[in-house]
Computed example of a mutant assay.
Amino acid sequence: MPIGFMYILECSNGSYYTGSTINLKERLLQHLSGEGAKHTKKYLPIKLVYHEEYSRIDEAFYREKQIQGWSRKKKEALINNKNYKLPSLSKNYTQNLNK
């Protein structure tokens, strides 16, 4: 049984909110009722678009912090199960410039 969850919500303004929790169902209810994070409260309604399960909450928290640093395109590749795109979306744009 999972102990931790990393999740991505889509907010009413189209933005993505990434979080982690030990109880995904309860945390979603908090977000939906406006008792979650300031961002989700401001941009209700929200929709769960992705989640991962972990055996420890610290692993879910680490993954949350990792994904928070990702670009919108990279998050969308993950959400849409297009994992093959993740490596190319990880490259620094300067790596593709001709010298």
Rank of each mutant, 00 (worst) to 15 (best):
E64L: 04
V49W: 05
A77S: 14
T21A: 01
I57D: 04
A60V: 03
N83V: 10
L86E: 11
E64D: 01
Y50Q: 04
T18D: 03
Y17Q: 09
L78W: 08
R63A: 11
E53A: 14
K82C: 12
L44A: 10
N80A: 13
L9F: 10
F61D: 07
R56M: 08
E52C: 06
E52G: 05
K25T: 12
K75T: 06
W70L: 07
Q95I: 03
L32Y: 10
I46T: 13
L32Q: 13
E76T: 10
E59N: 08
K42M: 09
I57R: 12
K65T: 04
T18N: 01
K75N: 11
K74D: 02
L28F: 10
Q66C: 07
I46E: 00
N96S: 14
S12H: 08
N92Q: 10
G19R: 02
T94W: 04
Y50W: 15
I79H: 11
C11R: 14
K82N: 15
K91H: 12
F61Q: 14
E76K: 11
I67H: 06
I22M: 03
Q95P: 01
E10N: 06
G14W: 10
S15F: 02
M6S: 09
L44N: 03
N83Q: 09
L97N: 08
E52Y: 04
V49N: 06
K73L: 12
Q95V: 04
T94S: 11
Y93R: 11
P45A: 08
P87E: 08
K38I: 12
K91C: 07
I79F: 10
G36N: 00
Y50M: 05
K38R: 09
Q95C: 05
Y7K: 03
S20C: 12
S15G: 12
S88K: 10
T40N: 02
K42N: 11
L44P: 00
N98G: 07
I57G: 00
I46V: 15
Y62L: 06
S33A: 15
M1F: 05
K75E: 05
N23D: 14
F5K: 00
K74G: 02
K85T: 01
K25I: 07
G36H: 00
K47S: 11
P45L: 09
L9I: 08
Q30F: 03
G19V: 00
Q30G: 00
S90T: 12
L32F: 06
H31L: 01
R56A: 12
N13T: 08
Y17E: 03
A37D: 13
T21R: 00
Y7W: 02
K42W: 02
C11E: 08
M6Q: 13
L29E: 14
C11W: 00
N92C: 07
L29C: 02
Y84F: 13
H39N: 03
Q30T: 01
F61K: 12
P2N: 03
L86H: 07
H39D: 04
P2C: 02
K85N: 09
D58K: 05
I67D: 03
V49G: 10
K38T: 09
K82R: 15
A77W: 05
K73G: 02
E26R: 13
D58Q: 11
V49S: 06
S20E: 09
E10Q: 15
N13C: 12
N81W: 12
L24K: 04
N80Q: 15
N13W: 02
S55I: 10
K85R: 13
D58T: 08
